[in-house]
């Protein structure tokens, strides 16, 4: 009887670890942090010899030597840093024995209710602000501030809607790049903007894969070679999609 209870306890600990790891990778955390968090949860729960294998596309974990392993697959990766923070916070509360393993697991299952996204208009405004301010910082171009705000927001809207309905990330990046470049060129033709190059640079900035690239390098250097290369290829594909989109439009004008 006691042995069976042990098995159940171990199962829920392993499930919690795998779920926590999956959420963290899906929300854009680097692999070494995921590894660290999962190990800490397992140690705090009292597992003696947890084995964890984390990559950006899936997680394998086993509790003790003679029990089976649990697999968690990661199908989509986006950025939601509040989820990373929330998992971190829950893990810390678990370590301080404020919550038990069942509460922890329940919170992870319902994490979408715990974490609120910024409203969509605020996200779009954020993208616009990033584009407009970086035009000033990178290009010393104050005159194109407002038009870049509009076009960067437009690029983000295209990216967001395409991501919702097409689910191919690279295609939505490509289409967003085409949209931004077209809009910038037309804005200059209509006299709304002055320098189309600057407007395109600003409009692309919310879409640039700067973070996957840094994550790739850090994964690589922390010894997670598989994840590092996978992330590097992902970043490279995104950059190529954006580049092709812009190049297509520049070729025509």
């Amino acid at each position: 009887m006691a042995e069976k209870e042990d098995r159940n306890y171990e199962k829920i600990v392993v499930d919690t670890c795998v779920l926590a790891g999956t959420i963290m990778i899906e929300s854009g955390s680097e692999v070494s942090r995921v590894n660290d968090t999962m190990l800490r949860i397992a140690k705090n729960a009292g597992l003696k010899d947890p084995q964890i294998y984390v990559t950006v596309t899936g997680i394998i974990m086993s509790g003790t030597a003679d029990s089976g392993a649990q697999v968690g697959s990661v199908d989509k990766r986006s950025f939601d840093l509040e989820k990373v923070t929330e998992v971190n916070e829950l893990s810390r509360e678990f370590a301080a024995k404020k919550i038990d393993i069942n509460t922890f697991y329940d919170s992870l299952v319902h994490i979408d209710d715990l974490v609120s996204m910024f409203p969509e208009w605020l996200q779009i405004l954020g993208a616009g602000i990033v584009g407009a301010t970086l035009v000033v910082v990178f290009r010393n171009d104050i005159h194109d501030f407002w038009i870049t705000l509009a076009i960067a927001a437009l690029g983000w809207i295209i990216y967001y809607l395409m991501g919702k309905y097409i689910q191919v990330k690279f295609l939505s990046e490509f289409l967003a790049a085409v949209g931004v470049a077209f809009a910038a060129t037309f804005a200059v033709i209509l006299g709304l903007g002055i320098n189309s190059d600057d407007i395109i640079v600003g409009g692309m900035m919310p879409l640039v894969p700067g973070i996957p690239l840094t994550n790739a390098i850090r994964d690589m250097l922390s010894g997670n070679l598989v994840s590092g290369i996978a992330r590097g290829v992902e970043a490279l594909l995104s950059a190529c999609a954006l580049g092709f989109g812009v190049a297509l439009v520049i070729r025509f004008f």
Binding site: G28, F79, D80, L81, E82, K83, V115, M117, F118, L122, Q123, I124, L125, G126, A127, G128, I129, V130, T133, L134, V136, V137, W156, P206
Partner: peptide, 15 residues
């Protein structure tokens, strides 16, 4: 502008 570019990025990364 630098300050707001970082904050704006945080907005759609859901900081």
């Amino acid at each position: 502008c630098v300050y707001f570019s970082s904050v704006g990025f945080g907005l759609f990364m859901n900081l």
